[in-house]
Amino acid sequence: MTRRTRLWVLLTGGAGLAALLVAACLRLPHFGGDRHPYGDRAVHASLTRHTANTVSSVNFDQRAFDTLGEMTILFAAVLGCVVLLRQTRDERRARPEPAEVARPVRRYALLVLPVALLSGLYIVAHGQLSPGGGFQGGVVAATALHLLYLGADYAALERVRPVGMYEVGDALASSAYVVTGIAGLIGGTAFLANTLLPYGTFNTLSSGGTVPLLNAAIGMEVACAVVVLLARFLDQAVEIEEESGR
């Protein structure tokens, strides 16, 4: 099995795949055309369940099991970062010295932090009505918290953000998502099926059955995961130093 033959096998396999892909692309609906077989069914299903934002309906109702996969991917990624970026034996943790930041920048950070946090919660809460949802709102809320590091210093952020609580929050939110799914099982239908709660009136906060609940669980999970992830990165970059003496 010389290099050349291996290359030939790769090329033939690639050519076959390319041919299949081109054939498939030729039969896709036209760009910007009006025939969308999957789209029509998704919109119909989301409207029957009174969810105004079809993307959220697909994310948290029709394909909720995939979102469970995405959530566990994020959870595992953050877990990997926590394990990799831990403080090893030959490293010590230096106290982050307070930094002197220009007054307007500090005042801006203290002013925008609650506004950004509220906007993040707004995006999570209205996930099934307007563009947004758990993922986007969670990231906005988590980034808002780090305005403290940007506006002041890492010591101020550490005082406000107990990392242990956020790790527990991360795990709690993930299990809340799974428990909501299991509730569907107990309710006699399928796992993560949207048949438990009434669908409510269209385009209101309580519409969509379990979509708002799953949205909130994902929002909390993403926010806590991002805070834990950034905490490990900040620890490594700002606090943890190598033992200078060998």
Binding site: V112, A116, S119, L129, V140
Partner: peptide
Amino acid sequence: PSYVDLGLVLALLGPVGTLV
């Protein structure tokens, strides 16, 4: 009007990126 939320998030987080 629901697209205005994108402008809101960019107005909030854009300057934060520059602060970073």
